[in-house]
Structure formats: C-alpha cells, structure tokens
C-alpha cells in the first residue's frame, strides 16, 4: 500500500489494488452559517468544488471518498445547500465514482446521493483501509487496519527561535487502543490499529493539534496514544511527535 500526500487539497491518494482519493470535511454551505454568526461573504462552494475536481484530474483515482461533513448546516438543510449540492455532486460523479462516510454535519445529505454512495457512519473497510468520519465509535471490522478519519481539522502551530511563525493544516497519525474503542483485541504479531486524522479540505477550518491531544472530543482522539503520535504537513513533511510542537518557551 502506498499513500500520496496531495498538497493542494489537502487530500490523500491511497493506492492498493485500486486508487482512492480521500477528502475530509468540505463543509459546503458554511457561509450561510457564518452569516448567521455575523460574518458575511459570498459562497465559496464553487471554488472548493473546483479544487476537488483539480485533485481528481491530477490523480485519476478509481474512487473518491468524502470523509464526512461534506455539507455544513445542521439539523436541517439550508437553502444554500439545496441550491448548490446537486450540481457539485454531479460534477464529481461525472469524473469518478464516489462514496460518502456521513459525518455529524451531514444530516439530510442522503437526498442528494445515488444508491450505493452513502456508507455506514461507523465506517467501512475499502481495499484494506478503514474509513470513517470520526465522530462515532468505529465498526469492529476496522480493527487492525489503518483508519483514515476527518472531524478533527488538525492544525499545527510551528514555533522557531523567536516565536510562532506558521500555522498550517496537518495530519496527525497515532495508534489507538483497541480495547478503548471496543474493537476486537489486537492479534499477536498484527500491526496495532492506527488512525490518521486528516486536515479539513475546507479552507476556513482548523483546530490546534495540541488542543486535540489535550482535550480529546471524540472516541478516536480519546483512545489514541499520544506517545506514538506523528505529525505531517500537507506535503508529507514529517514534523515529529506531538511533543515536538509543545511550546518550549516555558520555564
């Protein structure tokens, strides 16, 4: 198995027997929610969808997996979503078959999806890799696999000698305790279950990795072993363990 970091996504291309393009947390329609909270600007869904299509064009995958929170409005669909989603999905379908792992923001998404596209929210194993959005406990079948998950929007803050100089979307990889997640116990000699939290494709979202580790807010993040964690930038640059991001300026 091989994983490519698609930087302009951020997205991952997972190659095993087939090529799977994975994109997490599009949050299409976030603008109408922001407007309700006092921040007004026009919809950027079109731009976001175009970026997805660019990734598809660049990687020619056999399958596109949208890792949840494809849309934004809860508990009901917004007018913006009614208007925008059908066309955006049609645009994806014309290029590649797609699968959606529903997230906590995906209420009502089924009406825009074709048969077979919607997966279980507890996740599925496709071509040897586990996929789920990440707000639920994973399906037992995901145990022992690498699990790709969204929901957490990890963001790394890098500090140099003089102070903070960069905040960038990043991937967080860590092993998870099977027992904690209710997965079947790890078999002898088998790789431990690992989870890779993907950064949000939505350019407005981001949540500091240190906060994810310190105040976990999902089964996956609660059960991960921070000691084994590794952080990667969107181009695959290995930053080091989470502990290397901790501020060293304290005395």
């Amino acid at each position: 198995m091989k994983i490519d970091f698609i930087e302009p996504g951020p997205a991952l291309l997972v190659e095993n027997t087939i090529k799977v393009l994975v994109i997490a947390d599009l949050h299409l329609g976030i603008e109408s929610d922001l407007a309700q909270h006092g921040i007004h600007f026009s919809s950027r869904s079109g731009l976001r969808a175009a970026r997805v299509r660019d990734c598809i064009r660049e990687t020619t995958p056999d399958l596109l997996i949208l890792l949840g929170d494809v849309k934004h409005s809860i508990p009901v669909l917004s007018r913006q979503e009614y208007n925008e989603l059908p066309e955006i999905f049609e645009g994806f379908r014309r290029m590649v078959p797609m699968a959606v792992l529903p997230g906590n923001h995906d209420a009502g998404i089924e009406r825009f999806l074709k048969d077979g596209e919607l997966q279980k929210k507890e996740g599925v194993v496709i071509d040897g890799v586990g996929y789920l959005h990440g707000h639920t406990y994973p399906d037992p079948s995901l145990g022992g696999h690498l699990i790709l998950a969204g929901h957490h929007h990890p963001l790394a803050s890098l500090r140099d000698d003089v102070g903070c100089s960069l905040r960038a979307p990043a991937y967080l990889l860590a092993s998870v305790a099977s027992s904690c997640l209710g997965l079947p116990p790890d078999e002898e000699g088998r790789e431990p279950t690992r989870v890779m939290f993907m950064p949000a494709f939505n350019e407005l979202s981001g949540y500091d990795i240190l906060k994810i580790v310190k105040d976990p807010f999902s089964p996956l993040s609660r059960c991960m072993d921070a000691g084994t964690s590794e952080v990667f930038l969107t181009d695959g640059t290995y930053l080091g363990p989470v502990s290397s991001l901790e501020e060293d300026g304290r005395d």
Binding site: D33, L34, H37, G38, I39, H40, H153, L155, L204, S205, G206, Y207
Partner: peptide, 11 residues
C-alpha cells in the same frame, strides 16, 4: 462582519 460576530466559528 457584524459588530457582534462570533469569530470562534472560523479559524
């Protein structure tokens, strides 16, 4: 941006 906008919504 409204005067009482909620920035927490947005990185």
């Amino acid at each position: 941006i409204d005067p009482d906008a909620d920035y927490e919504r947005l990185s």
